[in-house]
């Protein structure tokens, strides 16, 4: 892989990746009422991997993230389909989403929507696929 042996880049990356990850999670959950959502969250998450790839080499990433991203992508796609099927179980049309709200101690009212599950599937699919693509190309080159 890239043979840029730059200490600065690597050190900065260590910090920045966590900022990006936090941003990704924030964007993912804010999608309901503000800009953000599954796609963006997933893409931001994936871009942090791109940064790591640029700063380190393949081996480090493999060791640091022993995940099969094909599987991540596949499970994302599966979750998306399953949330749709879930509606059928309750006698609703395919992919009909529902909202539950309940109150937690200390935190207060919490709204939970099946859209969140759906979006999580989308995000996983995006992350899995984008990282798979990048890893395939990087490995290949």
């Amino acid at each position: 892989m890239l043979k840029i042996n730059e200490v600065i880049l690597q050190t900065v990356t260590k910090v920045v990746v966590f900022i990006i990850l936090t941003l990704a999670i924030y964007l993912f959950f804010s999608g309901h009422n503000a800009p953000g959502g599954g796609f963006i969250g997933g893409l931001v998450l994936a871009s942090s991997f791109v940064l790591m790839l640029l700063a380190y080499d393949m081996e480090t990433i493999r060791k640091g993230l022993p995940l099969d991203f094909k599987l991540v992508g596949a499970s994302g796609a599966l979750i998306v389909v399953l949330t749709g099927l879930g509606a059928i179980v309750f006698g609703e049309p395919f992919l009909k989403q529902a909202i539950f709200s309940f109150s937690l101690p200390l935190y207060g009212r919490v709204e939970f929507s099946t859209v969140t599950l759906f979006e999580a599937g989308v995000a996983l699919a995006v992350v899995g696929v984008v990282v798979t693509i990048i890893l395939s190309i990087a490995e290949d080159v």
Binding site: A77, V80, V126
Partner: peptide, 19 residues
């Protein structure tokens, strides 16, 4: 949501294709 579902699947297929 149906479109988005199919989109996620298309994305996945493209990923598998590249792999």
């Amino acid at each position: 949501a149906f479109d988005t579902m199919l989109e996620a699947i298309v994305l996945f297929i493209a990923g598998i294709g590249i792999y």
